[in-house]
Amino acid sequence: MEISELLMQAANLMLTGMVGVFIFLSILIFAVKGLSKISASEQSPEQPKVKRKSQRGDTAGVPAAHVAAISAAIAQFRQNN
């Protein structure tokens, strides 16, 4: 008698619990998908910028004195041969 009442409550809990877990995690699925879309759209225009920056950085990173020294060395090498 009392057990059957408890069983009804347990069955109710089983239903609400599973529905609750599925709803919560399904919302999370959409949230994660949204998150990856946002970060993908923000990343794609950024990437080439980063590359360009790094390319500029490479050429600008060599000091003028080094460039002069290297070109002088090349010129000397060409004269000697």
Binding site: I3, L6, L7, Q9, A10, A11, L13, M14, G17, M18, V21, F22, F24, L25, S26, L28, I29, V32, K33, L35, S36
Partner: peptide, 25 residues
């Protein structure tokens, strides 16, 4: 994060909890 649909599997496996609740009663 790479495959968020896997959350459904994490949800389904929780049926073990709620079915056992019924079993305990």
């Amino acid at each position: 994060i790479a495959n968020p649909r896997m959350l459904l599997l994490g949800a389904a496996a929780q049926f073990g909890i709620f079915a056992t609740l019924f079993g305990a009663i």
